[in-house]
Design a protein around this nucleic acid. Structure first.
Lengths: 161, 161
DNA sequence: CTTTTGGTTCTGGAATACACGAACCAATTT
DNA sequence: AAATTGGTTCGTGTATTCCAGAACCAAAAG
């Protein structure tokens, strides 16, 4: 292995760690985050089970569970090649995109809960607070609608989803 | 206590549980989520330490830590009344609002990471995947800018923040 | 200066989340 | 049909999170 190749691998390893913690902080288990990160940076962008395990130096079960989680969320899928029993796992870019969209669409959910609260509070004698609450609800709904609109416009411009 | 009052308390208790799990799922510890929920529904909308503890039937330390977390994040603050040593904790609606804004502004962070990845991948021989990656990056940046714009417009219309 | 009050910090225990290794399973290969 | 391969599931140990209880502390009251 040449010097340049080794350096490249080292850079990749660092990227995986760095992105790994990012995905960790967005809710995945450590190994799960790293698997996703690795599939993002690896070349070619599909790897079989053993390659992933090798790179991450984790147990089979850890990798298996991580891949299960990621495929369940639609973030990862796999391809196969005839005459080769292995699954080659890869980022499912479309799935990822719609998962991102769905997450953003959830911005409005809090607003619904707060509306309930406001209803319950209507008899209350503290209109100042209720007014503040309304402001937050309105902000939520404003954003929710705005984001929905952004997504719709995006989808019009990029129908290939 | 009248029947109606008891029913009301029961409804509040249910709301607190319901919203509690919502906040839990968005990253808070159970008690922390319930404290926030309680401060949202309680009437008047500020309560002293002991009242919160009473209602949630939790330990002093649990309440103390929860309040510390919430005030650190700017979601809760407290008022005092002269001649009364107690702190009356309440939702900090402005802080909450800016925390919501900040969270939304973070939508773009992933895009930065992915740009690094794309840079690293540029020598790679799989342009199809790189193209998909670009699409996601573009979507992220499109949304990020769009959301920023929404927030700016909101702030123009509601300068009182 | 002693006690009470309002609250924080420390320590220990219980529950939970993670990941490992082994057992397992189905589909191939031999 | 025996063995290998590609992968999943189960059971266990460990690290972490979360909360209760006690000790603690500063400010106020007595």
């Amino acid at each position: 292995m040449t010097m340049a190749e080794e350096e490249k691998i080292e850079r990749i390893r660092q990227k995986v760690e760095q992105m790994g913690v990012f995905f960790e902080r967005s809710g995945f288990a450590p190994v799960t985050g790293r698997v996703f990160a690795y599939l993002l940076v690896c070349d070619p962008p599909h790897k079989d089970f053993f390659a992933i395990q090798e790179f991450l130096k984790a147990s089979k079960s850890a990798i298996s569970n991580a891949l299960a989680v990621l495929t369940n969320e639609g973030l990862v899928d796999y391809i196969t090649f005839s005459g080769d029993r292995r699954r080659y796992f890869r980022i499912n870019t479309n799935g990822w995109l719609s998962s991102l969209k769905n997450k953003l669409r959830r911005v409005g959910v809090l607003g619904d809960l707060l509306n309930d609260v406001l209803n319950e509070r209507c008899e209350s004698d503290c209109p100042a607070f209720n007014h503040e609450l309304k402001k937050i609800i309105f902000f939520q709904s404003y954003l929710s609608k705005g984001i929905e609109q952004l997504i719709v416009e995006w989808e019009e411009k990029h129908p290939a989803t």
